[in-house]
């Protein structure tokens, strides 16, 4: 049974334009992902493609001008806002993207200890700090005294000691050196192997490929492809969607060739396929309607031309 399931999620933001005039910007549209127990799902895509918003929608921490539709279920039951409040930090933990989430007036060691639910908090905190190569004197420091990488490791520690079933890690690796990244990823893997699940939101495809089981590729607020990790290894033939292919080609270890243009803004989404304006394969029918996500070769893709 899947531990977390997101079905047909849409998120839109109400904004004032001029005076009392309001507009709705749809930032996530018909998004589907499932997270199985024992699995690591990597969510990759451009910034602004709705990756962080998905995390915030699952935890119910979107700002008040956001409206959400669609169904999110956790352990088979719908995740209502009351339930979101109850499971937050107890069953589902978030590793936030911004290091601004640390309390600026609290020693970082104590911050990590507050999330320990069972057993000796000090011991658990020291163990996780050691694992992530943070020296013991770091626990007595304030966030402003930490480097970017150290702050990020503190955020990671908080989720790791909390004893939850699902960790949603929003960009946990940037600014960390390879040794620490490996430790952090190994720890995610161990966590998943205990029957828990990790949603790893990242643009670092290389780390994602090392530990994830599945990859979901986001573009302009929707899932364009869900694939097994193996499809992204080696050459790019097994990749289904043209955007995923472009992403793969742009990696420094591959061709380092970017496609031109940028992701459409939520206020000016194309009527058809969201990727059509930048797609080499686009034909007139691509501009007519947004394609539905369909099964293809043991994965899913939202493109009429993918084979």
């Amino acid at each position: 049974m899947s531990i977390l399931e997101v079905k047909n999620l849409s998120v839109s933001f109400k904004q004032y334009t001029a005076g009392l005039k309001q507009t709705n910007h749809k930032v996530i549209s018909s998004l589907n992902v499932t997270l199985e127990a024992g699995e690591i799902l990597a969510v990759v895509g451009a910034s602004g493609s709705g990756k962080s918003l998905l995390a915030h929608a699952i935890l119910g921490i979107l700002p008040s001008n956001a409206s959400v539709s669609g169904v999110i279920t956790f352990e088979g039951e719908e995740l209502t806002s009351a339930r979101q409040k109850a499971v937050r930090g107890k069953e589902i933990a978030l590793v936030p993207q911004s290091v601004n989430f640390l309390d600026p007036l609290m020693h970082v060691g104590s911050q990590v200890r507050t999330s320990v639910k069972k057993g000796d908090a000090v011991k658990a905190q020291r163990a996780v700090f050691e694992r992530l190569h943070l020296r013991q004197e770091v626990e007595q420091m304030y966030p402003f005294q930490l480097s970017g990488g150290m702050a990020r490791r503190t955020l990671l520690s908080t989720a790791m000691v909390s004893g939850v079933k699902v960790i949603i890690a929003d960009e946990p690796t940037p600014g960390l050196d390879p040794v620490v990244i490996k430790e952090a990823l190994d720890q995610f893997r161990e966590f998943a192997n205990q029957g828990c699940a990790v949603m790893l939101i990242t643009h670092d495809i290389e780390s994602a490929l090392q530990i994830a089981d599945k990859i979901a590729v986001f573009y302009a607020g929707t899932t364009v492809e869900i694939a097994k990790v193996e499809d992204f290894l080696g050459q790019s033939e097994a990749i289904r969607h043209p955007y995923s292919k472009a992403l793969w080609r742009a990696l420094p270890q591959n061709d380092f060739i970017p496609i031109p243009g940028s992701q459409p803004h939520p206020s000016a989404l194309p009527t058809g396929c969201l990727f059509a304006p930048r797609c080499e394969m686009a034909t007139p029918e691509c501009w007519e309607a947004q394609p539905d996500i369909r099964n293809l070769r043991d994965g899913m893709v939202r493109c009429i031309h993918a084979t």
Partner: peptide, 17 residues
């Protein structure tokens, strides 16, 4: 200083080019 660390691969390649 980690100029493109937070960016996706396509944007990273665009900016560096």
């Amino acid at each position: 200083d980690e100029m493109t660390t937070m960016l996706d691969a396509i944007t990273q390649a665009q900016i560096w080019h």
